[in-house]
Write a protein that binds this DNA or RNA. Structure first.
Lengths: 241, 241
DNA sequence: CCCCTCCTGTGTCACAGATTAATGCGCGCC
DNA sequence: GGCGCGCATTAATCTGTGACACAGGAGGGG
C-alpha cells in the first residue's frame, strides 16, 4: 500500500499493519479506543497530554488555532495516520484534531513510547519513518503555500489527498471520498474561502476535477499534476521593448 | 540547552551530545566527515541517497527548488541539526542543503540507521524526538506562511532563529550571528525580496530588531513576540458610516 | 408550511504584496 | 584606476488575493 520501495533498509510491509485495522501491536500497547463524532474538536495540549493516537477509521483534520481566530489546517487525517507526537512543544498555538466523519482512534499511552523503543525496535523504526514522511509532507506543503498561486495550491492539495486515498485503497477509480468543506481546504492552503471557491470553479469548468456530494473525482490527472508543480502557461508577460 | 522539560519520558540530557561536539556515539556510527564551503549546494536525492548528516559546526539552509525556478527555504540549519531523513520520498522537488558559513557535517551511513534502532534505543528515541520537533516547527512555519502578514512572518522568523541560537548557546545577550541574505529570509517566509526588505526597514525603524554585518540583534523582544503571534494593532478599517 | 442556519456561488472593490527597474555601495580583479 | 559583480535599498506600477455583501440551495426542526 504505502510505497516503501525507497526505504533502503528493509521492506516495510509492517506499514500495512498501521493502516486501518487494529493489529496485535496496537492491541498490546493501546490504552483505549476513542470514537469521535464530527464537529467535536479533540484538543492536544502539547506533549503534556499523555496520549498519542492512531486513526483507525474515518477522516478528520489536524489544525492549529491562532490567537486572532484564524486557523491553519496542517494535514488531513486518514486511517493509519499517527497523531500526537508533533503536538506543541512550546504551547503557543492550540493544536487540535477534528473529525469530519465519525472516527475511531486507537489511543496509546505516551509513557509506553519508551517501552516500545526498548522492546520493539521494528515498530519504533516504523514510527520514525512515519514521522519522516510527515516531515516531508509538511516541507512540501510549506513550499506550496509559500511559493504557489491559488490554482497550483488547489491542484496540489487535491492531488495529494487523492493519492493518499488511493494508496490506502480508499479510492474507487478516479473517485475518492472528500468529507471536507471548502473552508477546510482554504485553511489548509492559506487562501480565503471565497477565493478557494472561485478557483475551484475554474478547475471544475476546465473539467480537471469535480467535487460534490462529499466525493472528489479527478477527471484530468495529467493537467492536475502539471499544475501542481508548475504554472501550465508561463504567466510571464513579455517585455514591452 | 535544548528544552526537554516537556518530554514526559526522561530527561533528555543526551540531547546535548547531539549539539556541536562530536560524541562517542557519532564516532561509532559515522561514516565520514564533510566540510562544506558557502555557496556549494549539497544535493540530497531523496532516500536513495545513502547518507544522513548532522551539522557539527557552521550554519546553512535547507531548501527545495521548484521547476519554475522558485525556492522555498524549509529551515535554517544550525549545529546539532539532523538532516536527510526528511529528504524527498517522491522525488518531485529537489531537496538541498547549502552552507552560508563554512560548515562541518558528520556523515552517517543510512544503512546503519537500522542497527542504531536495534542496539541503541536511547539514541533512536532521540532521533524520533528530533523528527517530532522538526515536524512541530514545520507546522508552525506552515501556519505562519499561510495565515500571517509580512510583519508577522518576519517577526516570527527572526524570533525563532534567535531562540534557536540562544538555546544552542550561540547568542551573546540579545545578539546572534545571522549569516543569511535577505533573499534567504524572503524565500523562507514566502515573501518577495523587495517586500522583505521594506518590512525589515519597518522593524528596524521601530527599533525592534537590527540586522547588519551578519548579526541579528533583538532590541525589543516583547514587541517582537507579540507581533509574531498577533497583529499588534488591529488593522480592521472602521466602516465608512 | 415557515423560519433558521450552514454552506456554496458570484459580483464589486480595496489593498498587501509581486514585479520591474534604477541606484548606491562594497569588494575583488585585471 | 576602471570594471564587473553581488547585495541592499528605494520608487513606481500592476495584480492576485482578500474583504464584504448578497443570493440561492439544502437541510432540520417545530
Amino acid at each position: 500500500m504505502v510505497d516503501c520501495a525507497n526505504c533502503p533498509l528493509r521492506k516495510l510491509d509492517s506499514f500495512e499493519t498501521l493502516n486501518r485495522e487494529e493489529t496485535a501491536f496496537m492491541r498490546r500497547f493501546k490504552h483505549g479506543e476513542l470514537k469521535v463524532d464530527p464537529g467535536t474538536p479533540l484538543l492536544m495540549e502539547g506533549s503534556n497530554s499523555p496520549q498519542l493516537y492512531t486513526a483507525l477509521r474515518g477522516m478528520g483534520l489536524r489544525y492549529k488555532l491562532l490567537p486572532n481566530g484564524k486557523r491553519q489546517v496542517v494535514n488531513f487525517v486518514l486511517p493509519g495516520d499517527f497523531i500526537g507526537l508533533q503536538a506543541g512543544l512550546m504551547g503557543e498555538m492550540q493544536h487540535s484534531v477534528e473529525a469530519t466523519t465519525p472516527m475511531v482512534l486507537c489511543v496509546f499511552d505516551r509513557a509506553e513510547l519508551w517501552t516500545l523503543f526498548k522492546t520493539e525496535p521494528e515498530r519504533a523504526f516504523d514510527l520514525t519513518w512515519l514521522a519522516a514522511m510527515e516531515e516531508h509532507f509538511l516541507g512540501e506543503a510549506l513550499t506550496t503555500v509559500g511559493q504557489m498561486s491559488a490554482v497550483q495550491r488547489l491542484s496540489w492539495g487535491l492531488l495529494r489527498f487523492f493519492s493518499k486515498c488511493h494508496d490506502l485503497g480508499l479510492a474507487d477509480g478516479s473517485r475518492c471520498p472528500f468529507p471536507y468543506r471548502q473552508q477546510d481546504l482554504a485553511d489548509a492552503l492559506g487562501l480565503s474561502l471565497v477565493h478557494t471557491n472561485k478557483t475551484l470553479m475554474k478547475l471544475r469548468q476546465r473539467q480537471i476535477v469535480s467535487l460534490q456530494d462529499g466525493c472528489l473525482t479527478v477527471r484530468d490527472p495529467e493537467t492536475l499534476a502539471k499544475q501542481a508543480l508548475l504554472e501550465v502557461e508561463s504567466p510571464r508577460r513579455r517585455p514591452l521593448i
